[in-house]
Amino acid sequence: MAEQAQYEELARQLSAIGAVKRGLGRILPPECPAGSAAVLTLLGRYGEMRMSRLAELLSVDMSVTSRHVAHVADRGWIERCPDPADKRSRILRLTETGHAQLDELSLRTSRLLSDRLGHWSDDEVGLLIELMGRLRESFGDCRSPQRAPAHPPPYATDVSEPTTRTPA
């Protein structure tokens, strides 16, 4: 198991991921903000799906998912078709225009990563991919109830211990 100092450094490094995400966000076309790009990416990766499944994959509330879906649908990048199994639900799928937009996003992202990580070896990039996947998997679904930590944080107090008060 890693030492406390390693976890502290990991926390510092993870906080710096925001800079990476902002850099990736700056290359997105103005008409395709990050939430829209995420919708297109997930539909491209997993294929057509219901809005509820998309919300799970995005790890956001249905209201947030609905706004993202409305944005991409308004641009003609996805279509919302009735679900044959449940006419109240809609199946989301990429359109031809949506596939083209996703291809453009992928090209922009690949170019940026190639530019920034071009001096890394293939093995280093592969290791980063593997470790980031494991990290994400360790956190599971961000919307599900958090499980109790194996070890309480150092600032936690045990309320079962008696306390003594000094008279005032």
Rank of each mutant, 00 (worst) to 15 (best):
A2Y: 08
E3H: 10
E3K: 13
Q4I: 13
Q4G: 05
A5E: 15
A5D: 14
A5Y: 11
Y7S: 10
Y7V: 11
E8R: 04
E9S: 10
L10C: 06
R12A: 11
A16E: 12
A16L: 15
G18S: 13
G18P: 03
G18R: 11
A19S: 13
V20Y: 10
V20L: 13
K21Q: 15
R22Q: 15
G23N: 04
L24A: 12
I27E: 03
I27C: 06
L28W: 01
P29N: 05
P29S: 07
P30N: 01
P33T: 03
P33C: 02
A37S: 12
A38K: 05
V39W: 01
L40W: 02
L43N: 00
L43D: 01
L43T: 00
R45W: 03
R45E: 13
G47S: 05
M49Q: 02
R50M: 03
M51K: 14
M51N: 08
R53F: 08
L54P: 00
L54R: 00
A55M: 01
L57T: 02
L57E: 00
L58Y: 01
D61E: 14
M62D: 06
M62R: 07
M62N: 07
S63Y: 13
S63I: 11
V64S: 14
S66D: 11
S66W: 04
A73W: 06
A73Y: 07
A73S: 08
D74K: 05
D74M: 06
R75Y: 09
G76L: 03
G76A: 02
W77A: 02
E79V: 08
R80L: 04
C81Y: 12
D83H: 01
D83R: 02
P84T: 00
P84S: 00
D86R: 01
K87G: 08
K87V: 07
R88H: 04
R88G: 04
R88E: 09
R88V: 11
S89G: 05
S89M: 12
I91F: 00
I91N: 00
R93K: 03
L94T: 02
L94Q: 00
E96A: 14
E96G: 12
T97P: 04
H99A: 09
Q101K: 15
Q101T: 13
L102V: 04
D103M: 10
S106W: 10
S106P: 04
R111P: 05
L113H: 01
L113F: 04
S114V: 08
L117R: 03
L117Y: 11
H119V: 15
H119L: 11
H119T: 11
S121P: 07
V125W: 02
V125K: 03
L127S: 10
I129P: 04
I129H: 13
M132S: 06
G133F: 07
G133D: 13
G133N: 15
R134H: 15
L135S: 09
L135E: 06
L135V: 08
R136E: 14
E137T: 13
S138N: 09
S138H: 07
F139N: 11
C142L: 14
R143I: 05
S144N: 03
Q146S: 12
A148M: 11
A148I: 14
A148S: 11
P149M: 00
A150P: 08
A150Q: 14
P152Y: 02
P152T: 06
P154D: 05
Y155L: 08
A156C: 07
T157M: 06
D158T: 10
D158R: 05
V159K: 08
V159F: 06
V159N: 06
E161F: 07
E161M: 10
T164S: 05
T164M: 05
T166A: 08
